[in-house]
Design a protein around this nucleic acid. Structure first.
Length: 552
RNA sequence: GCGCCUGUAGCUCAGCUGGAUAGAGCAACGGACUUCUAAUCCGUAGGUCGUAGGUUCGAAUCCUACCAGGCGUACCA
């Protein structure tokens, strides 16, 4: 919509230039925005102010000049206000035409080519396969998934990926934990080491091995068994994670194993390559990456003096791999507690010769879990953490997702379980869903009263004359721009704020105006408006992965 | 010490790439259901935008310093 306005303003500027009234060198960027107060106008531009200095003229004079050349059938009013804003009001037909197009687009309404098909990868969750996902992972999962949906809608070619840290000592530790529980279940007396994984889920996995294989491992040495136990446990946990995620409406395009980078020598090759480029040196028996040559504040070890490679080392190979797969933009979601990791990753990208702008790390701040205002304690140590699956089961996918997506992800989030379950106005998910259900209910009533309705029939929208109706129409039509903004800023919470605003206009309208009346033509026009609204809500919630029930 | 994030109404938070009189929701108070779903609506009240400077036509927004809270500062992953 705004681009249409830009063109109109652009034409006016050109005319003014041709008439010799403005110099316009260089030609200014035209910024069109929506005034805060709808009464001011539908759109406004501040070009007159930004040009003032170069034109050496009073901004108001420039504005008046530009206004004289503003001519377009879609414009119904041009006004100059304040220090030099040019405010534009559009004709009703301008909006109605776009409303029709929105309805015609249906599920595709909001789609744009902002991303121009750029290949983007989002890597998120990537929790270690050593235990089930807990609530903390949930926020990153919800944000990553929603961001993916948004980027797709905004025209990016998107892939999502889960990176599995299936290498290193933690895997041995994990396998050993199951092995110990296995023997314990078979009657051995075990002193379970407290630096191992002591959660209940390990016992369940051990029991599963007994169910499947009996006691066949009980007579073997740990050495002989470990690789089986390691793999079995890891696979089992990953299967659980996958299940929890799909119940949370998240599926990944790809699961990428860290081990595979060792299996195909990618890690070695990456090290060699960096060595060749002179980014690597040896010191104190270890191999270091000269990351301080970039924005990192110190160099980092990639091969320990024991010969083991660090996590960071395979991450280098992993990101090289991502780039080799042709991704032009690489997005990683991480918990904010890992923010120290950002500069060294950026250093890697730069060492590989890429602009660090192709790489974007989104930090997701912590979630505090509350119950009726009281903090729920979570200690990973004791294995007493609240799992994502439990919370989803208790609260429901929609409410959990909404709560994770309603706030900017760089602020701490208080997530109150009791509040999230309440079906009251304290809970915005239901406020939005309720609006959707109400609209559907109106359509049901219309059908029951014998009203024949379909969006492609000839409906006279000029019968929509209420200011409130246009307020809703403008809000509906803003949706595609919200998606683009949200994609550009990679900020998911904008969608939820938008929907809240959109829907509150509807609730107000609903209480003051009847949609179904004896005036058949008007009824049809209003139903058309509600259909458009319904599409916007549904498409918006689709981006958040939240359902739109037709009845509540 | 250094680095990152946050600080806006009693509470939870929006506020776009600097724009017009700083906005919602909740809580509080007062109203509205014989009418398409009251999980709703309408009204009232509530502010030194952490503090102090700076940049400019214009700052909650950008810069600097400071204060407060959170997090990080591994040859862990």
């Amino acid at each position: 919509m705004k681009t249409a306005i830009k063109i109109i303003v652009h034409e006016a500027l050109e005319k003014a230039q041709q008439a010799g009234e403005l110099e316009l060198s260089p030609f200014p960027d035209i910024v069109v925005e929506k005034p805060k107060d709808e009464k001011i106008g539908d759109f406004s531009t501040n070009v007159a102010m930004t040009m003032a200095k170069r034109e050496r003229k009073n901004p108001r004079l420039i504005a008046e000049c530009v206004a004289r050349y503003l001519e377009n059938g879609d414009l119904s009013k041009v006004e100059i206000a304040g220090p030099g804003f040019i405010n534009l009001k559009m004709s009703n037909e301008f909006f109605l035409e776009r409303l029709r197009s929105a309805v015609k687009q249906g599920d595709n309404f909001g789609q744009s080519d902002f991303g121009q098909g750029t290949k983007v990868m989002i890597e998120f969750v990537s929790a270690n396969p050593t235990g089930p996902l807990h609530v903390g992972h949930g926020r990153g999962a919800a944000v990553g998934d929603a961001l993916g949906r948004i980027l797709k809608k905004a025209g990016y070619d998107l892939s999502t990926e889960y990176y599995i840290n299936d290498v290193g000592n933690q895997m041995n530790c994990l396998g050993r934990s199951t092995w110990l529980r296995y023997r314990e279940l078979l009657g051995d007396v075990i002193e379970f080491p407290d630096d191992h994984y002591c959660g209940e889920y390990i016992k369940d996995i051990a029991q599963e091995i007994i169910d499947q294989r009996g006691d066949e491992f009980s007579t073997k040495s740990e050495e002989e068994c470990l690789s089986f136990f390691r793999k079995f446990t890891k696979d089992n946990i990953l299967k659980g994670i996958d299940k929890d995620l799909s119940e949370f409406r998240i599926t990944f395009d790809n699961w990428f194993s860290e081990q595979s980078l060792y299996d195909d020598n990618s890690v070695e090759k990456a090290i060699d390559w960096l060595k060749g480029e002179g980014h690597i040196y040896e010191k104190d028996g270890a191999v270091w990456l000269k990351s301080s040559a970039f924005d990192d504040d110190k160099d980092r070890v990639i091969v320990k003096k024991t010969g083991e490679k660090t996590y960071f080392c395979s991450d280098i190979a992993y990101h090289q791999n991502k780039i080799n797969r042709g991704f032009k933009k690489i997005v990683n979601l991480m918990g904010a507690d890992h923010h120290g990791y950002v500069p060294r990753m950026e250093a890697v990208l730069q060492a590989m010769g890429y602009d660090k702008k192709i790489f974007k790390i989104l930090l997701i701040q912590f979630v505090s879990l509350l119950r009726s205002g009281k903090k729920v304690s979570m200690s990973t140590r004791s294995g007493e953490f609240v799992t994502l699956a439990d919370v989803v089961k208790e609260v429901g996918v929609d409410a959990v997702r909404y709560n994770f997506l309603m706030r900017s992800s760089d602020t701490h989030l208080d997530f109150d379980l009791e509040l999230a379950k309440k079906e009251t106005s304290e809970n915005p998910v239901f406020y939005i869903q309720y609006a959707y259900a109400r609209i559907c209910s109106i359509f049901r009533t219309a059908e029951e009263s014998g009203m024949v309705w379909n969006s492609s029939s000839d409906i006279d929208l000029s019968l929509l004359t209420e200011e409130e109706e246009y307020s809703i129409i403008r809000a509906i039509l803003a949706f595609p721009e919200i998606v683009v903004k949200s994609a550009r800023a990679m900020e998911v919470h904008r969608i939820s704020h938008y929907l809240l605003d959109l829907v509150s206009r509807f609730h107000g309208y609903y209480s003051r105006h009847r949609v179904i009346s004896d005036d058949k033509a008007l009824t049809l026009a209003r139903l058309y408006l509600l259909d458009a609204l319904r599409i916007a809500i549904r498409n918006g919630f689709e981006l958040m992965g939240i359902s739109t029930p037709e009845k509540m």
